[in-house]
Design a protein around this nucleic acid. Structure first.
Lengths: 117, 117
DNA sequence: CGGTATATATCGGTCAACGTAATCTACCTA
DNA sequence: TAGGTAGATTACGTTGACCGATATATACCG
């Protein structure tokens, strides 16, 4: 499961949404760093429905346009929880290792007040 | 950047390692959930070297076999830090949303002692 | 009348990841 | 001594998620 898919599941964890709504939610969650393209979005949704991690909640017709709502299934919630835990663990390991390393790339210094000048 | 690549960078964050060593380190970091295959490993390393996130540290010949050590570059450390932060944020959002949701899929119950039976 | 926002569908290309196999040496065991 | 395991890298073909582009249709604003 890649980042876009993970974020789609996360967006749906707060409650059912239609495709376009997911796109907006994902942009917000990721602070604008991830913008779902139509191809990515509907491709992923189709896949997730087939895997039964997501289900079609209901369909509406608004202004002659179809609006299809998706919701997270229990299996989807479980999968998301599992992935989230893994992601957080991996991130924690990476961050702790980077801290232990003399870090030159982030603009930080081990001597922030220049005491050793 | 996908999970295998992220874990390779994380493995190298602790210090230079050769390919096979990375595989073992990744298995340990991920608690056995990610087992890098040769194709994934060396493909990713080649890509990372080309992107200058990883560099060849040194080469040794042990028992007639080549052993090539890789290390994280400063750019690689920066990239890893950025990704780790993002991953952690996404994981946190997902987990907080799942908590807010009546959770049926994890084997937990709101009535763990069966008081409402 | 044209542009933007809303909303979904589909197609083809790309590239990371994946699986497998091949190669070679050292070492242990049967 | 033959075979299996561990270490270590290379090569090759396949899969599949993601992405860009395109198409379609309505409503609203300037």
């Amino acid at each position: 499961m890649q980042e876009p898919t993970f974020l789609i599941l996360t967006a749906l964890a707060a409650g059912p949404k239609h495709g376009y709504g997911v796109t907006q939610e994902v942009a917000e969650i990721s602070e604008g760093t991830v913008t779902l393209r139509a191809g990515t979005l509907y491709g992923a949704l189709d896949r997730l429905v087939e895997q039964e991690l997501v289900a079609v909640d209901r369909q509406e017709v608004v202004d002659g346009r179809l609006r299809r709502y998706y919701r997270l299934t229990d299996a989807g919630a479980g999968k998301l929880a599992e992935r989230a835990r893994r992601l957080r663990k991996h991130a924690e390991v990476a961050e702790s290792r980077l801290q232990a390393r003399p870090n030159l790339a982030l603009g930080f210094t081990a001597d922030p007040f220049g005491a050793c000048a």
